[in-house]
């Protein structure tokens, strides 16, 4: 039963993974793509292997990661409206990105990472550390403090961003606004690899605690009684979710709704056993973001829409449908 469900989601994931690289403004010849692997350099193969494939991979990883973090955080905070960005990490990230966009002297490059990514990562990591130190207590994390501190830091970052917007030149503002819309368009394998050292430990921590999260969803005191090390689990889920979010947001910007809608859709379709919800959210989230990105790069071809617009416009109505349908969130 469980294996079947996961297989079903895996098939959707694989289908999107296999189909989306072929979708885009330029039509691609299958034969040329295959020849490209054998050493025949041609534009079709170049676009397919060096633009489309890494882009689809990033979409799958980023969408999956965001949905997974959302699913875990909704249990950790016992709140159905929490998503990866509720904790203000996108605020910190955006502030970091805007700083380096509007102040050219901050421009640095490190390996495959651009200045914007480095600063975005630094901003979200700083937020993560700050929130964690604020909510840390001897008897465990104060979850409400965590949530409130996160939301407050988000607001502070928005204030700082408004100030920067007021002071910056229009070019920087346009660049920043484009970043805020979220996108997985500027991407090569180098950036993809640079994501891994943070992303995979984060994802691993979350998956590892799937069963523990079931017990925590039931009741923290019961979980303790059952033998779950609640304090450690909560800390690990927070840190795992934080690392994953920081890695993703620094590369693709704040892509909304995936982290909120996908976990709720999965719970509606397949129940609320976290051992199913977490992997299935990852698979469906990845498929959804990669699919939205395929729409984003074709719908207004040859121009590209930022994928954040598609996820919000498609995701928003879907979420409202979930709210008004009989399903209890």
């Amino acid at each position: 039963m469980k294996i079947k469900t996961i297989l079903l989601y895996s098939m959707v994931f694989l289908a999107v993974a296999l189909i989306s690289p072929w979708i885009g403004p330029e039509s691609i010849d299958v034969a040329k793509v295959l020849h490209f692997i054998q050493g025949d350099i041609n534009p079709d193969g170049e676009i397919f292997w060096h633009q489309r494939v890494p882009r689809v991979l990033l979409g799958l990883l980023a969408g999956g990661g965001l949905a997974l973090v959302g699913a875990s955080f909704q249990v950790l905070f016992r709140n159905p409206l929490v998503e990866p960005f509720t904790l203000g990490m996108s605020g910190g990230s955006a502030l970091g990105a805007f700083l380096t966009i509007s102040i050219p002297s901050l421009w640095v490059v490190w390996g495959p990472l651009s200045s914007v990514q480095i600063f975005a990562l630094g901003g979200s990591a700083a937020c993560l550390a700050l929130i964690y130190s604020l909510a840390k207590r001897p008897q465990g994390m104060a979850v409400h403090t965590l949530l409130l501190a996160g939301v407050t830091i988000s607001i502070i970052c928005s204030g700082a961003i408004l100030l920067l917007t007021y002071l910056s030149n229009p070019n920087a503002i346009v660049m920043f606004q484009r970043w805020m819309m979220g996108g997985i368009d500027v991407i090569g394998y180098g950036e993809l690899v640079s994501l891994c050292p943070l992303l995979f430990p984060g994802l691993g921590l979350l998956f590892f605690h799937a069963n523990d999260l079931n017990h925590i969803a039931l009741s923290e005191e019961i979980a303790l009684g059952h033998g779950v090390a609640v304090k450690n689990v909560k800390r690990n889920v927070f840190i795992g979710g934080g690392l994953t979010t920081a890695a993703i947001v620094s590369l693709v910007g704040p892509i909304g709704f995936v982290g909120l809608i996908i976990p709720h859709s999965v719970r509606r379709l397949s129940g609320f056993d976290q051992r199913l919800v977490l992997p299935c959210s990852f698979l469906l989230g990845g498929a959804a973001l990669a699919a939205c990105d395929s729409i984003a790069r074709t719908v207004l071809a040859p121009t590209e829409l930022p994928v954040g617009i598609i996820t919000a416009i498609v995701g928003g109505p879907l979420f409202i449908y979930l709210l008004v349908s009989r399903y209890r969130i």
């Binding site: 249990v75 016992r78 969803a217 039931l218 009741s219 005191e221 019961i222 719970r267 609320f272 209890r328």
Partner: peptide, 8 residues
């Protein structure tokens, strides 16, 4: 008291 988040 047990206030479960989900309807197990």
């Amino acid at each position: 008291e047990v206030a479960s988040l989900y309807d197990f």
